[in-house]
């Protein structure tokens, strides 16, 4: 019962995130909404394991957390440098090109 309530709360949270991803209005709302739904996915997989009586898949949830993290890093890098192949220094891209 406890896990069912947790799953229901997570479903509601995912729906709220979905609304925020649709409405925007800024880019950062959407990045945060996507990141939040990824986190909810991780927790929902963990809750689902106990709900279905098979908590062996808890490890999978950890790897989802890693994928979520790398995805968010890639999106933020795209906004910082406008280019995913950038080596990634502390400086912005314009400054790097000025130095070259």
């Amino acid at each position: 019962m406890m896990f069912a309530a947790a799953a229901a709360a997570l479903i509601v949270a995912i729906f709220l995130g979905l609304i925020r991803a649709y409405l925007g209005p800024t880019i950062y709302d959407r990045i945060l909404a996507g990141n939040m739904i990824g986190t909810m996915t991780v927790i929902l997989i963990a809750v689902h394991g106990f709900l279905a009586g098979r908590p062996e898949f808890l490890d999978i949830a950890l790897v989802y957390a890693l994928i979520n993290f790398i995805g968010t890093i890639a999106i933020l890098k795209y906004f910082r440098f406008k280019d995913l192949g950038h080596a990634g220094t502390d400086k912005g891209r314009e400054e790097v090109e000025d130095d070259a």
């Binding site: 995912i14 995130g17 979905l18 991803a21 649709y22 909404a33 996507g34 996915t41 989802y64 995805g71």
Partner: peptide, 11 residues
């Protein structure tokens, strides 16, 4: 972003 969310939901 919504495409990524769609993938997470289907996962």
């Amino acid at each position: 972003m919504l495409g990524g969310i769609y993938s997470l939901l289907s996962a």
